[in-house]
Amino acid sequence: MLTIDCERKFLNLELKGLSAEGRFSGYASLFGEPDLGKDVIERGAFSRSLSSRGVAGIRMLFQHDPASPLGHWVTLKEDARGLYVEGQFAPGVSKADEVRRLMKARALDGLSIGFQTVRSKRDAKTGIRHILEADLWEISVVTFPMLPSARVSEVKEMSGGAMLAAKLRHAAAVMRG
């Protein structure tokens, strides 16, 4: 049996909205921010993996359990802030419905990336490992994210007007720092 060491890093998820249909969006990774394991994902670390695997090649799981798929990723892209994701829970899947309800209730709010390090460098002074390239396999919805600040910023079912207002509030908060 072939075993592959896959790293698990619990990282930030900021849900911008959770629709009745089970769509959500946020960040699975933030660039330049050290996690509790002293790892920092650097900008561009996922670009080759996203290009070669594509959105269909990255799984959406619950708690990294390959027996608990939740749906599929609609969008995975690196932007200036991190790895932006948009996901769709699978209809008729009881675990996906449970996770959607927990997100809406603000009881579940983290994402974790499952990857294999391709290239990294360690800062001898700080001990921080900088991940320069990562082969991304999956992104899981998790209970405990690796970053202490990894919490859902907003989860609600929104109309178009409410969604726009929430996006403007979020943008203003980001600009304030």
Rank of each mutant, 00 (worst) to 15 (best):
L2R: 13
I4E: 12
E7F: 09
F10Q: 12
L11K: 05
N12H: 14
K16I: 05
G17P: 00
A20T: 06
G22P: 05
R23W: 06
F24T: 00
S25Y: 00
G26C: 08
G26D: 10
A28T: 10
S29D: 14
G32K: 06
G32A: 12
E33A: 02
E33G: 00
D35H: 06
K38S: 13
V40P: 01
R43L: 13
A45E: 07
F46H: 11
F46Y: 15
S47C: 09
L50G: 11
S52R: 15
G57E: 09
I58G: 04
D65F: 03
D65Y: 05
D65R: 15
A67Y: 07
P69M: 11
P69N: 09
L70C: 06
L70S: 11
H72T: 15
H72N: 14
W73L: 07
V74K: 11
T75L: 15
E78L: 05
D79A: 02
G82R: 03
L83G: 06
Y84F: 15
Y84M: 04
V85L: 15
F89D: 05
F89C: 07
F89A: 12
P91G: 04
S94R: 13
K95T: 14
D97H: 03
V99A: 12
R101F: 01
R101N: 09
R106T: 04
R106D: 14
D109Q: 07
D109F: 05
G110Y: 11
G110H: 10
G110L: 07
L111Y: 14
F115D: 11
Q116F: 01
T117L: 09
R119I: 04
S120N: 12
K121W: 13
K125D: 13
T126I: 07
G127A: 08
G127S: 13
I128M: 08
I128R: 08
I128S: 02
I131H: 01
I131F: 01
L132G: 01
E133Y: 05
A134Q: 08
W137T: 04
I139H: 04
S140Y: 13
P145D: 12
P145W: 04
M146Y: 01
S149A: 15
S153N: 07
K156T: 02
E157N: 02
M158D: 14
A162Q: 15
M163H: 13
A165W: 05
K167M: 08
L168S: 09
L168G: 01
H170P: 00
A172Y: 02
A172D: 08
A173V: 05
M175A: 15
R176H: 03
